[in-house]
């Protein structure tokens, strides 16, 4: 009985999204609550006095980056076996997760993009001044395209590094995998350097005097890093045996 089915890679992406639906949903809910709470505290009479023209949304990206890193780490060990044992090739699994990485990083970036005008609107309502305090790809909070590009590449790099780490743990014994973390985290760090945004950008520029490359160079470099991540995972997983246990 042959029915029309989705392409296996798309099936992988959708099933994974479904698996993490609660994790993702609750994360963003808690995240937003915390940031609203921080905002309220910072603006309260006692603390607010010293906060001049400071926004909080600008610094909010660390949390999603770490969250994406962790989800990335979980990808391979928790789900490769269940897909391959249901007849999905490793190649389709990798494509499916890659697709998920791109889509979810984009969604997260869009959330960050939306936060800026909302913050601006709130600050304007209370007549608080608002300025960007760290270097970014974008100069002001209305350059939505650039904001999206910055966050998208950072998020996908962290997600990708996590995926690399998890895949190392699946493929090798844990001792070797721990050592490989040093290599696997490089894409995320490289992306931070290339994009040179936020507090890392601030450190690079002020302390080390390293200027960010022009936009025309940043984007291809970022794409190279992303391609490197996907290629590395492919090399790691394309012949990996399906194991019984998550960590050997």
């Amino acid at each position: 009985m042959n029915r029309k089915r989705r392409h296996p890679a798309i099936n992988v992406a959708l099933k994974l999204l479904y698996t993490y639906r609660w994790t993702i949903g609750i994360y963003w809910l808690v995240f937003l609550c915390i940031y609203v709470a921080i905002g309220v505290i910072l603006r309260s009479p006692t603390v607010g006095a010293e906060m001049d023209a400071q926004g909080i949304w600008e610094g909010a990206s660390t949390s999603p980056k770490v969250f994406l890193l962790v989800i990335g780490i979980l990808m391979t060990p928790l789900s490769l076996a269940s897909f391959v044992s249901n007849g999905v090739t490793r190649r389709h699994f990798i494509w499916g997760v890659s697709g998920l990485l791109v889509v979810y990083s984009a969604i997260s970036a869009i959330i960050m993009v939306i936060g800026y005008p909302i913050e601006q609107w709130i600050y304007d309502k209370y007549d608080w001044p608002l300025e960007l305090s760290n270097p970014h790809l974008f100069k002001d909070a209305s350059q939505f395209g650039l904001i999206f590009v910055e966050y998208f590449f950072l998020f996908i790099a962290f997600f990708g590094s996590g995926w690399l780490i998890g895949s190392c743990f699946y493929r090798f014994n844990w001792k070797l995998a721990v050592v490989l973390i040093l290599l696997a985290i490089l894409p995320a760090m490289a992306m931070e350097t290339v994009i040179s945004a936020d507090w890392i950008g601030s450190i690079l520029q002020k302390a080390y005097d390293i200027e960010r490359a022009s936009l025309a160079a940043v984007i291809p470099l970022a794409l190279c890093i992303v391609a490197l991540v996907f290629a590395s995972v492919f090399l790691l997983l394309r012949k990996v045996p399906v194991k019984r246990k998550v960590l050997s």
């Binding site: 042959n2 989705r6 897909f83």
Partner: peptide
């Protein structure tokens, strides 16, 4: 195999649904 390769956190229904989406003759 005896204990299978279940996704962590998958319910029985989820496991069956995953299998249903993967096997052409399900």
């Amino acid at each position: 195999q005896e204990s299978g390769h279940m996704n962590e956190g998958f319910s029985v229904r989820d496991a069956l649904s995953l299998a249903a989406s993967c096997w052409p003759n399900w």
